[in-house]
C-alpha cells in the first residue's frame, strides 16, 4: 500500500490548540507542505503573530520567531536582511496585519522585501474573544459591534490584497479560500507559489487566505464555511491580484 496522504514532517507532533473546525489548522498544513515540497525546511524561518496563531512556533518544524502584535513583517525584514538565503515567512491574522500592523505590511510590501506572507482573514479577532476586525463585514455582529458593523460609524472593511497590489513593490499577491477541498488545493498552489517567488528572489509575496472562526461567529464549523463562501467571498473576491514575471 502506498501513502496517498499523511501529515507532513514540517509540522511538529504537538496537537494544534485551535478550536474544532477552525481552518487555521488547514492553512498551517498547507504552509508546512509547501515548505516541505520545496525542500527548504533547513532554510525556513517562520515569524508568528499575536492572535490565534501566536503559538505557531510550536507547530512549524523549523526555526521560529514570535513577533509583537503586527510587527511580523518588520521582524522578518531584520531576519531576512541578515541571512538572505533563509526562506522567511510571516503568518498573520487580520487584526495583526490589517489593523495594528498596517504600516509594517505596507512598507515591507513596497520595499519588495523578499519574504512570504500568509495572511489569514477570518473577519474577526479570534484570540481576544471575537471583537471587530478591520476586515469585519458591514452588518457583522461582533463583541465590539454588537449591533452589527456600521460603516457610517466605524468605516468599511479593508481589502488588503487589492490595496497592496496597487504598490510597485510586491511580486505576487493572491487571495484564496479554504472552505472546500477544491479551494484548499488552489490555496496550496498559491502558497507554494508565494514561497517559490521568494526562493527565486522575486520579492514580496502575500497570500490572503479567507478563513472561518466558528467559535466567535457563533456557528458550527459547517455553517461557518457556508457563511464564508456566501458572505466573505463577495466582499473579498478570490484570485491573483498581482504577479510579476
Amino acid at each position: 500500500m502506498a501513502v496517498v496522504y499523511e501529515k507532513t514532517k514540517m509540522l511538529t507532533d504537538k496537537p494544534l490548540h485551535y478550536c474544532p473546525g477552525c481552518t487555521h489548522g488547514i492553512i498551517h498544513r498547507l504552509v508546512a507542505e509547501a515548505i516541505d515540497e520545496l525542500g527548504v525546511q533547513d532554510k525556513a524561518i517562520g515569524v508568528a503573530p499575536v492572535g490565534c496563531a501566536v503559538f505557531a512556533y510550536d507547530y512549524f518544524n523549523c526555526d521560529m520567531m514570535e513577533a509583537a502584535h503586527g510587527r511580523a513583517p518588520a521582524v522578518a525584514t531584520g531576519c531576512k536582511r541578515v541571512n538572505p538565503n533563509n526562506v522567511v515567512f510571516t503568518y498573520q491574522g487580520d487584526g495583526d496585519l490589517a489593523s495594528i500592523g498596517a504600516a509594517e505590511i505596507t512598507h515591507a510590501a513596497t520595499r519588495g522585501e523578499n519574504i512570504t506572507v500568509i495572511f489569514v482573514n477570518n473577519a474577526i479577532y479570534g484570540m481576544t474573544g471575537g471583537q471587530m476586525a478591520p476586515t469585519t463585514l458591514p452588518g457583522q455582529v461582533t463583541t465590539t459591534s454588537p449591533y452589527g458593523r456600521d460603516p457610517n460609524h466605524c468605516g468599511y472593511p479593508i481589502r488588503v490584497s487589492e490595496m497592496l497590489a496597487t504598490l510597485d513593490g510586491p511580486a505576487y499577491i493572491a487571495r484564496v479560500s479554504v472552505h472546500d477541498v477544491k479551494h484548499i488545493m488552489e490555496a496550496k498552489k498559491a502558497i507554494k507559489k508565494a514561497f517559490q517567488m521568494q526562493i527565486e528572489g522575486k520579492g514580496f509575496a502575500l497570500v490572503e487566505v479567507l478563513s472561518s472562526c466558528p467559535t466567535n461567529w457563533g456557528m458550527t464549523p459547517q455553517e461557518a464555511l457556508k457563511w464564508l463562501q456566501e458572505n466573505m467571498i463577495p466582499q473579498y473576491p478570490l484570485g491573483v491580484k498581482k504577479e510579476v514575471e
Binding site: 499523511e6 509540522l11 494544534l16 472546500d180 488545493m185
Partner: peptide, 19 residues
C-alpha cells in the same frame, strides 16, 4: 476510494490515507 478529501479538509492533520 482513497481520494483523501477528508485528510485535505481536516484542520488537525488527523487522517492518513493509503491505497
Amino acid at each position: 476510494i482513497g481520494c483523501a478529501f477528508c485528510a485535505r479538509m481536516c484542520p488537525d492533520a488527523v487522517i492518513k490515507v493509503e491505497k
